[in-house]
Nucleic acid binder design. Structure first.
Length: 884
RNA sequence: GCCCGCCUGGCGGAACGGUAGACGCAGCGGACUUAAAAUCCGCAGUCCAAAAGGGCGUGGGGGUUCGAGUCCCCCGGCGGGCACCA
């Protein structure tokens, strides 16, 4: 083969011209990208059957589906690029990859558009979808579009209604009272985000809590399983599992019944408390109940001031953040409870704004000595603080608490029969005694609450229930499904349009035939997104899912989305999967075997001198005397203040339109930049300079191939016998294959990009190395292909003209282990952990040789002079360290 | 407030507990050009030094280790979630 000779002939690489002789060679992405997109579609490269074929492993890649807000944003570009890289890589690795797309299409913004602009929510939503679908297609994503659906398609939500009825029959659905944010002026239930500083966002009225009868999924029944199964999710980020575990919130403690010592006959004569610290019962100084507690109601009934306090608590909103951040306040009801252990002792009962009705029993006993919140509360209201846990080594006779409670382990004292026990033993002893005297029991308590799914809104999936005076709650019979949303709805009135629709809710009871009323609440949109991943497996089926399809494709092998969904969406999906398992729809328990959570896309923000937010395209930049950046308004000299780098948001106008970027630079460039900037789990900053750099690289890669092309040997020429410079290039090629593969496997896409950059530099510096060069160029094309798929097809068509194969159809490259081995290795030589030099040794050199070489190294020797070596450390392939 | 993260040059970042700053962006110098753009070559953490070399350096403080960006503790700043935004 002539390869070795040609490489020998060109040993002096520096003589090869480095300037590009044909600078006009450019990649025309505008024509190439649509052309390759059409080719992929024509060959159905990304379509898979509902039931995976046997013989090849399946791989299900899914990104969290978008809400159709109208335009895609950079967060979508990042999300779908990440998924696309994974899907293309796994396909090359021989998997049959399902990679679908759909729309999370129900929700509030469509109703807001209807109220504000008079557009029907359905039209608004489907118009948005059409627009966003076109934008996504321009990104060149390898998606199976034949599976697309929107959750607002009646074909989807009708199936969801079937699932609900199955869950209902299986006893996974309950009707319960719960509290909502009520806007008394608009007569509307408000979402938490619609409550701003305690007021309705539209009316400005003070929001009140109101109790409504609502539908709930019994997610708490699965609390133990949802917690334990986290241990099986070995491809989920630990932090997400930790957050879920904390959310589920298993805690061991006791329920303690307190007898009322002083209370009017009309009030409950007993109050039950949940505590995780029954060992501190002797340090009790008060009992506190939530404002919604029956005892609070009893107090309010006879004491106007108590009633006023309860009313105030009702104006606090329903969000936990609002409640916990509010100043801790309370009201003494005048009632008293007896102590379970101390004969004759009694304590005041307070109503407190920090006690949550939803957690435990809605009542606590206060032990200020050993609990932060109780301490704060007792200090504020002058309640007694009795220490009952002694820190290790403290003297019981002289111990005092100072200005903070003591919450760590210690020894019980001032505690009667518990004295001398540590916290854990005292807990056990206290529970034993409570159980023996019939005043309480040891229990496991969960923080997780049942999932309330009723929403008083139009643009959601109708809950398929009929309310009958005679028969009560009657599920809609399967034959009458789907319960379709009416099209003719009136948004000019506040409240739920379904409820004041003239005819929709009036139906005959399916059971007794008498006039009855439809449920006018619709589902929480989290229900829609709790099973869409299963529907994708058989999106046109006449039942919610088909067994063969879900059994074949589930679980999702790689799920990708924002960290903001770490708890609710993922937990609800995990519950729903179990519900579907219980009702015979599928057989897996966990929907997502692998999870990756991406960071946000951020951008600098800009403000004009008069404080207006400005879009990036309204601003231009120049350099000041010190090389810093100065911003001014485009087309003028008006100064612009460069603000913080923040998450892109419409309100701050720091958004960049992906459509404009793709138009200007092409999809490959947008994808390449978004992957190259930083690790995908971190927030990334979108910068104009960064995109421009990515664009330059795409052109450089094109030139690299295009200019080398005339000098390359024919396709298929073996590079096996390469020597000298050609062999070096081959080693670089195979090291890059190994490094990029490793980076893609670990989601280190920015590292993959860096390795491809390095490799491009190496190829550019290499001389005429014949078949080795062809191998290198073909390799870089294929290694870059998951990230820049259009350019890769273009380059491949240049390198292999007439073959007609697509990179999208080619297998992944394997590195040749023989070319990965190095002959020598560079070792760092340290003296006392400080680097003093490096030595180059053969990989198989023995330790004595290595130490001798290291000691002889000039700078090391100088450092060692006059000192005696006490210890020699050698970490093979890494470092030598001399301790003196 | 509670839970969970993150913090490395001017910037984004790289680095199985083992040569900190790979790679890129911005910058500077040079080549090419009538000129600019594009492209190509080179420099670059910081301080001291002519250089050789040395000191300092991964938000701050402490610890473990022959050796810490990496492990542990405390503190600070920034971000995500908190059950009706999606």
């Amino acid at each position: 083969m002539p390869t070795q000779f040609s490489s020998m002939a060109m040993t002096d690489a520096s003589t090869t011209p480095r300037t590009d002789p044909r600078p006009e060679i450019r990649h025309d992405f505008k024509s190439a990208e649509p052309r390759w997109q059409a080719e992929w579609e024509k060959r159905a490269c990304f379509a898979v059957p509902d039931v995976p074929e046997s013989g090849r492993p399946k791989y299900y890649v899914l990104e969290m589906f978008p809400y159709p807000s109208g335009k895609i944003h950079m967060g979508h570009v990042r999300n779908y690029t990440l998924g696309d890289v994974v899907s293309r890589y796994k396909r090359a690795r021989g998997h049959q990859v399902m990679h679908p797309m759909g729309w999370d299409a129900f929700g509030l913004p469509a109703e807001n558009a209807a109220r504000e602009r008079g557009i029907h929510p359905g039209k608004w939503t489907y118009d948005n979808i059409a627009n966003m679908r076109a934008e996504l297609k321009r990104m060149g994503l390898g998606l199976d579009w034949s599976r697309e659906f929107a959750t607002c398609d009646v074909e989807y939500y009708g199936q969801q209604q079937k699932l609900f009825l199955d869950f209902f029959k299986a006893g996974l659905v309950e009707r319960k009272e719960s509290w909502v944010n009520w806007d008394p002026v608009d007569g509307t239930v408000l979402a938490n985000e619609q409550v701003i500083d305690g007021r309705g966002w539209r009316s400005g009225a003070l929001v009140e809590k109101k109790q409504l009868s609502q539908w709930f999924f019994s997610i708490t029944r699965y609390a133990p399983e949802l917690l334990e199964a986290l241990g099986t999710l070995d491809r989920w980020p630990d932090r997400v599992k930790t957050m879920q575990a904390n959310w589920i919130g298993r805690s061991e403690g006791a329920r303690v019944r307190f007898r009322m010592a002083e209370a009017p006959p009309a009030a409950p004569q007993e109050v039950e408390v949940f505590t995780t610290r029954p060992d501190t019962l002797f340090g009790m100084s008060f009992l506190a109940v939530a404002a919604e507690h029956p005892l609070a109601a009893a107090a309010a009934a006879r004491d106007p001031k108590a009633a006023e306090f309860v009313a105030e608590c009702r104006r606090m909103g329903t969000s936990e953040a609002a409640i916990e951040q509010a100043e801790k306040r309370g009201y003494d009801t005048g009632f008293r409870v007896a102590h379970p252990f101390i004969e004759g002792a009694s304590y005041p009962v307070w109503i407190a704004n920090f006690v949550l009705m939803e957690y435990g029993t809605g009542a606590i006993f206060g032990c200020p000595g050993h609990d932060e919140r109780d301490f704060e509360f007792a200090s504020k209201y002058g309640l007694e603080i009795i220490p009952v846990v002694l820190p290790p080594g403290a003297d019981p006779a002289s111990f005092t608490l100072g200005d903070a409670p003591y919450t760590d382990d210690g020894t019980a004292f001032n505690s009667g029969f518990l004295d001398g026990l540590n916290v854990a033993a005292a807990k056990r002893a206290a529970i034993e005694k409570l159980e023996a005297t019939g005043q309480g029991t040891g229990v496991v308590n969960w923080r997780l609450r049942d999932w309330g799914v009723s929403r008083q809104r139009y643009w959601g999936c109708p809950i398929p229930i009929i309310h009958c005076e005679a028969c009560g709650v009657v599920p809609v019979p399967a034959a009458q499904l789907p319960v379709e949303l009416p099209q003719d709805v009136d948004f000019s009135r506040p409240g739920n349009p379904l409820d004041h629709h003239p005819s929709w809710k009036h139906v005959d009871c399916p059971s007794c035939g008498k006039p009855a009323r439809r449920e006018t609440d619709t589902f929480d949109t989290f229900v829609d997104s709790s099973w869409y991943f299963a529907r994708f497996c058989s999106p046109r089926a006449a039942e919610p899912v088909t067994r063969a399809a879900v059994d074949g494709w589930l679980p999702v092998d790689q799920y990708i989305g924002g960290i903001e969904h770490a708890i609710l969406h993922l937990l609800y999906s995990r519950f729903f999967t179990r519900g579907m398992r219980e009702t015979g729809h599928l057989s897996v328990s966990e929907p997502f075997a692998g999870l990756f959570t991406q960071g946000m896309v951020t951008h600098e923000s800009y403000k004009s001198a008069d404080g207006r937010w400005l879009y990036p395209e309204e601003v231009e930049f120049s350099a000041d005397a010190n090389g810093g950046r100065i911003a001014t308004l485009k087309g003028g000299n008006e100064p612009v203040v460069i603000g913080r780098v923040e998450a892109m948001s419409k309100s701050k106008r720091n958004t960049v339109d992906p459509g404009a970027i793709i138009e200007r630079y092409g999809a490959d460039t947008a994808r390449w930049f978004i992957l190259s900037d930083n690790p995908p789990e971190r927030d990334m900053e979108w910068t104009e300079a960064g995109v421009a750099g990515a664009y330059r690289f795409s052109q450089r890669l094109y030139r690299l191939v295009a200019t080398a092309l005339p000098g390359l040997p024919p396709a298929g020429t073996s590079a096996e016998s390469a020597m000298g410079e050609a062999r070096k290039l081959r080693q670089a090629t195979h090291r890059t294959i190994a490094a990029v593969t490793e980076a893609l496997e670990t989601f280190a896409f920015n590292v993959a990009v860096a390795r491809i950059h390095e490799f491009a530099n190496t190829i550019a510096e290499a001389g005429d190395t014949g078949a080795a060069k062809r191998e290198a160029l073909e390799a870089i094309t294929r290694l870059a292909s998951p990230m820049m798929p259009h350019l890769a097809e273009e380059l491949w068509s240049l390198l292999r003209p007439g073959e007609g194969a697509l990179v999208a159809e080619l297998p992944w490259l394997d590195a040749d282990p023989a070319l990965l081995k190095a002959e020598t290795v560079t070792l760092a030589v340290q003296v006392l952990g400080k680097l003093r030099g490096t030595i180059e040794v053969a990989v198989d050199a023995d330790e004595a040789t290595i130490f001798a070489l290291a000691e002889a190294e000039e700078n090391v020797a100088r450092s060692l002079a006059g000192r005696s070596i006490r210890k020699r450390i050698h970490v093979p392939g890494r470092v030598v360290n001399f301790v003196v």
